[in-house]
Design a binder for these strands. Structure first.
Length: 272
DNA sequence: AGGACCGTCAAAAGCAGTAT
DNA sequence: ATACTGCTTTTGACGGTCCT
C-alpha cells in the first residue's frame, strides 16, 4: 500500500483519516457520492474490506480487473472480508449517499445487499463501455474519481428526483442510531412496519443492522484515532451498552476481537 | 402503497466471572 | 485495571399475512 488516499467531497486527506470520512447518513449534495476512497498497492498483500452501510461503486485498474479495468457495484455487507491485493492494483471507490442507489444504479439497495454486481448488469453494455473508455484515459486515481463523479452526477440528473421512500429512509437513518424504530416511526408519521420495509429497500439492511454497522465504525474509528483509549471508554462513547457487547459485535462482524482487528489493520491495508 | 396484527426469535441488557 | 468470556432474562426487531 503506497499511502491509500481518501477524497471527502473536495478534500483530500491521508488514509489514517479514513474513518473520519462520513459514515451514512449524510446530507446529499448535488452529487450522489458521499465520499471517495482511492487505494493503490505496489506489492502483493492480504487486505481487509470493512463492511460499510453505503452502496459502493468500485473501479479497479490492474491485474485483478477484467481486461485491466472493470467497474462493479458492491451492496451493503455485514462482515469483514479478506482478499489478496495484487501488486500494481489500483481501486477508486465511490460511496453513494443513502437512498441514492436507485438514481445511480437503477436498482434499490435491497437488490444489491450482500452482493457484488458487474456494472454492465445494471447500466447495460453501451453505457458501461462509455464509462470504461473515459476511465481508460484518466491520468491517475484522483482524475478517475473526478470522472466517475461527473458520470454519476449525469445519471442522477437523468433519473430525476429522489424516490419518496429513499427520502424517508434518509430521514429515518440518522434517527434509528439514537432511538427505537417504533419511536422513529411515530416521529416521522408512518407505521413501524412501513418504516422497516422502506429502510430495508433503500438502505439494504434492517434498521438495527444499519445502526450496528455505524456503531461498529464509530468504535473502530475511535480505537484507531486514540491508541491509548480504554475499550470501556470507546464502547460507551460509541453507543455500546458495555465493553462486553462491543467485543461481541467485533467478533460477529470481523470474526475477531477488537485488539486482534487493530493488529490486523496495522499489517493489512484497507480495501475501502 | 401503506397500515394492522401477531408469533418468533435475535439482540440488548445485566451480571458474574476468568486471565493477564 | 483491562480485556475478554459466558450466561440468563427481557425487549423489541423482524417478517408473514391480510386488509384497505
Amino acid at each position: 500500500m503506497r499511502g491509500g488516499r481518501v477524497r471527502t467531497n473536495d478534500l483530500l486527506v491521508q488514509a489514517p483519516a479514513l474513518y473520519h470520512a462520513p459514515i451514512s447518513p449524510t446530507v446529499p449534495t448535488a452529487s450522489a457520492v458521499a465520499t471517495f476512497f482511492v487505494a493503490e498497492c505496489d506489492h502483493d498483500m492480504p487486505g481487509l474490506s470493512i463492511p460499510r452501510p453505503e452502496i459502493q461503486l468500485v473501479v479497479r485498474f490492474g491485474p485483478s480487473a477484467r481486461g485491466g479495468l472493470d467497474v462493479h457495484a458492491m451492496g451493503v455487507r455485514q462482515k469483514v472480508h479478506r482478499k489478496l491485493i495484487r501488486s500494481g492494483q489500483r481501486a477508486v471507490t465511490a460511496r453513494l449517499h443513502l437512498g441514492a442507489s436507485e438514481a445511480v444504479l437503477g436498482v434499490r439497495a435491497s437488490a444489491l445487499a450482500g452482493r457484488i454486481v458487474a456494472l454492465e448488469d445494471l447500466w447495460g453494455d453501451a453505457a458501461t463501455r462509455r464509462l470504461l473508455d473515459r476511465l481508460a484515459g484518466a491520468r491517475d486515481s484522483i482524475d478517475a474519481a473526478a470522472l466517475l463523479e461527473s458520470v454519476i452526477t449525469e445519471r442522477v440528473a437523468i433519473a430525476g428526483g429522489r424516490h419518496p421512500g429513499a427520502q424517508l429512509a434518509l430521514d429515518a437513518a440518522d434517527r434509528v442510531l439514537r432511538r427505537k424504530v417504533n419511536a422513529v416511526a411515530v416521529e416521522l408519521g408512518v407505521s413501524e412496519r412501513h418504516l422497516r420495509r422502506v429502510l430495508r429497500e433503500h438502505v439494504g439492511v434492517s434498521p438495527k443492522a444499519f445502526a450496528r454497522l455505524v456503531r461498529f465504525h464509530r468504535a473502530l474509528g475511535a480505537a484507531r484515532a486514540e491508541r491509548h483509549a480504554s475499550w470501556a471508554g470507546i464502547a460507551a462513547a460509541s453507543g455500546y451498552y458495555d465493553q462486553a457487547h462491543l467485543i461481541a459485535d467485533f467478533r460477529a462482524i470481523a470474526g475477531m476481537t477488537p485488539q486482534a482487528l487493530l493488529g490486523q489493520l496495522r499489517v493489512s491495508p484497507l480495501l475501502g
